[in-house]
Amino acid sequence: MRKKDILNLIKFHAEKNELQFRNEAMKIAEYFDDNGDHQLAEYIMSQFSTANTFIPQSDSFDSKFLKKVEFNFEPLPLPKEIAEDIKGIINAVNHNVGVNKFLFKGSPGTGKTETVKQIARLLDRTLYIVEFSELIDSKMGQTSKNIVSVFREINTMPFLSNIVILFDEIDAIALDRINSNDVREMGRVTSTILKEIENLNSDAVLIATTNLFENFDRALVRRFDTVIDFDRYQKEDLIEIAESILNSLLKTFKNAGRETKLFKKIIGNIDPIPNPGELKNIIKISLAFSDPSNEYDYLKRLLRYTLEKNEEIELKKLHQMGFTLREIEILTGISKSQVSRDLKGE
């Protein structure tokens, strides 16, 4: 337990801030419990329960800068290399040795934000995202003050060991100095972030994401324990991810038929195959726009993403792309025998 915890307890009591006083007392109780003094921890907790007062849980935390994020339970397939790194993060957090600050870099749509949600779910922690719309302020010096405030809130959150904090697209505050007319102001912002991350409570788990790593401040990068690169998708990875996305969506679009081999062949002909975020939208729109009376209409719509703009679906073209007669029949509605004759020039 740090001197700061005792000082905070005295400060909140003097200010008659009951909620923060209780939160700080709960943190102290957790400290004693984690260090084996369960009797003292229970005694502190009992002082609130016998007084019929509310013991705040992480779900009850209220903040101007932090917003609770709800999980979804859709599958999130990742390439083996990235998946192993994510397992490493979960192991590091469970070891509880102070390795708690992680930076996810990669192109838009590579699954950075969704992966953070999965990490929080697997750790059984509540996820909070920083609201940059509230954090960034046009007034001189106010953004730096807001950054100090949000980190103070994080460091004093009740049950911090049950929480994950997400700085999604941290570029909003880490890179603004490049385009700002007031370089001094953005310098102060950068310095503030560096200092606050350095002093982050060791119970916290902080994950930041960036699409602009090449322009990222090197000093800020060094404040993170590790950087995970999400730009490591091979073609085979994306085809497998597309199949997983389809299987999930088919639970909703029950009129659509399942032709896995044909579906994967269509995806494989997209050049280049988009990142998972865009890929999911393409598959979802193809299903949503499809004719409910034709179970394979979505495959025909999906096929158009493999063609040039306004290019017609020609039998010869499909044959050159490696589709079988049966697959061409599904995609065009023309019988296999007719397709065969047409390809032979009859």
Rank of each mutant, 00 (worst) to 15 (best):
R223H: 00
Q338K: 12
F159W: 14
I165L: 12
K139W: 08
L303K: 00
R301V: 04
V93W: 02
N52V: 05
N100Y: 02
E70V: 10
N179C: 05
E311C: 12
R326Q: 11
Q39M: 04
D225F: 01
N155K: 09
D168M: 10
D34H: 11
I10H: 05
S46Y: 05
D291F: 11
M140L: 14
T252Y: 11
R301Y: 07
P276R: 11
Y43T: 11
T209F: 02
L123G: 13
N17I: 00
Q20R: 10
L246G: 04
T252F: 08
K336V: 14
M157K: 11
N255P: 12
R341Y: 11
G106Y: 02
Y305S: 07
M157E: 11
F32C: 00
P56A: 02
K309A: 01
K117H: 14
F21L: 05
L76D: 13
M1G: 02
I154F: 06
D33C: 04
E24Y: 08
Y298S: 07
A92T: 03
A51W: 09
L279G: 03
I266W: 01
P158M: 12
N269R: 07
S49V: 09
R301E: 08
K16F: 06
K87R: 02
T143G: 04
G98M: 01
K64S: 13
R326Y: 12
L318A: 07
V205T: 15
T126G: 01
E30A: 01
D34E: 15
N199C: 01
I334L: 12
A51R: 13
K117N: 12
I282W: 09
N146P: 09
I241D: 04
Y31G: 01
L122C: 10
I89L: 12
L200F: 10
E308F: 03
E153K: 11
Y233F: 05
N275D: 02
V93E: 05
L299D: 06
A120I: 07
P108F: 00
L220H: 06
K101V: 03
E295R: 15
E240A: 06
E74Q: 05
A92H: 03
Q57M: 06
E240C: 05
L303P: 05
I241T: 04
F151S: 11
A288V: 11
T252G: 09
Y43S: 09
K280Y: 11
L206S: 05
K251E: 06
G36H: 01
S144K: 14
E236W: 10
H38W: 08
E24D: 00
T260M: 13
T110R: 10
E311M: 10
G111W: 13
L123I: 08
L307I: 02
F65C: 12
Q338T: 13
D176S: 14
D5A: 03
L122P: 09
P75S: 14
I197P: 07
V130R: 14
T143E: 05
K316F: 00
I86C: 04
N100M: 00
F54M: 11
V183W: 02
L166T: 14
P292H: 06
D137H: 13
T113W: 06
F253T: 09
G257Y: 13
L160E: 04
L7V: 14
E42Q: 02
G106V: 00
L127F: 13
E214W: 09
T332N: 09
F230K: 00
S60I: 06
G111L: 09
G106Q: 01
R125H: 15
F263S: 10
I241W: 03
N201Q: 08
L250K: 12
L206F: 07
L315K: 03
N181R: 15
N8W: 08
N146H: 13
F12V: 08
